[in-house]
Amino acid sequence: MAQSVWGYDSDNGPDHWHENYPMAKGDKQSPIEINSKDVQHDSSLGPWHASYDPGAAKTILNNGRTCRVVFDDTFDRSVLRGGPLTGAYRLRQLHLHWGSSDDHGSEHVIDGVKYAAELHMVHWNPKHGNFAGALKQPDGVAVVGIFLKVSGKYSRILQGIDNIKTKGKEAPFQHFDPSILFPKSRDYWTYHGSFTTPPCEECITWILLREPIEVSSDQMAKLRSLSKNGENEPVNPLVDNWRPPQPVKGRVVRSSFK
């Protein structure tokens, strides 16, 4: 398997990642299954706060593995703070993982429940100089994870998808306030883990929101109609781009709620 071609198929999927990315077999990998009975409520965990500048949103991209929205992170323009974090973390990108049908697609699993999709908002700690530097530090990155469940509701995150049908397509995605994606409840689980894509660096403080947000089945269908092939190739639907839960290996998941 060449460095560049990891993916989610049987020949290059999560079971093979460790062949080129040994960290994928590390002790602090993500995602995990969270079992309520093992979670420790931590009364010292305060609320988290996001102050996002809608002008920081730049582009939406289909890279053949996910749909990603990229933000300007050259200064403290859109930041996350509070909760388990020390200092302000800058929003760099958000992306989604989803299934081929509504009954699976999320990466984290809660008491056996899988959601249709999971949204990851990736922030990094500017005290480490730049994003590459943050990837090498245990407190380098903070990801807010939000579950998506299918209902009649409509979510703006999926509006730009028509412009990025095929791999390599990028389109402007401007004046977007990512905080509209947050559920009403700020309750969260938190644990130390990794990126869920190679090289699977173990630098992430996860803030996983308990309450899912709702998207329409039309929007999920649109997401599943993206192609992981380029414009002049046959359509190859981009679906099931999720990594299954990894061993917890003694880590403790804390919750902000009882």
Rank of each mutant, 00 (worst) to 15 (best):
V5T: 15
Y8T: 13
S10V: 12
S10L: 11
G13M: 07
W17P: 04
E19K: 14
N20S: 13
I32E: 00
E33A: 12
I34H: 12
S36T: 15
K37L: 08
K37A: 13
Q40S: 09
H49M: 09
P54F: 00
P54S: 11
A57S: 15
T59A: 12
G64R: 12
C67D: 08
C67T: 15
F71H: 05
F71K: 10
S78F: 04
G82I: 08
G83E: 09
G83Y: 06
G83H: 08
P84Y: 01
P84E: 10
T86C: 11
G87M: 03
H95T: 06
L96F: 06
D102H: 03
H104M: 13
S106I: 14
E107Y: 03
I110G: 09
I110F: 10
V113Y: 03
L119I: 15
V122C: 04
V122A: 05
H123F: 06
K127W: 02
G129V: 03
G129S: 09
G133K: 10
F147I: 02
L148S: 11
V150C: 08
S151G: 15
R156Y: 12
Q159N: 13
I161T: 07
N163I: 03
G168C: 05
K169S: 13
E170C: 12
A171L: 10
F173H: 12
Q174Y: 05
H175V: 04
D177V: 00
S179C: 14
S179W: 02
F182G: 07
F182D: 11
D187W: 02
F195R: 15
T197I: 11
P199G: 14
W206F: 05
I207M: 11
I213E: 00
E214Q: 15
S216F: 05
S216T: 09
S216N: 11
S217K: 11
L223T: 07
S225G: 04
V235A: 08
W242V: 09
P244Q: 06
R251C: 00
K258E: 13
K258C: 10
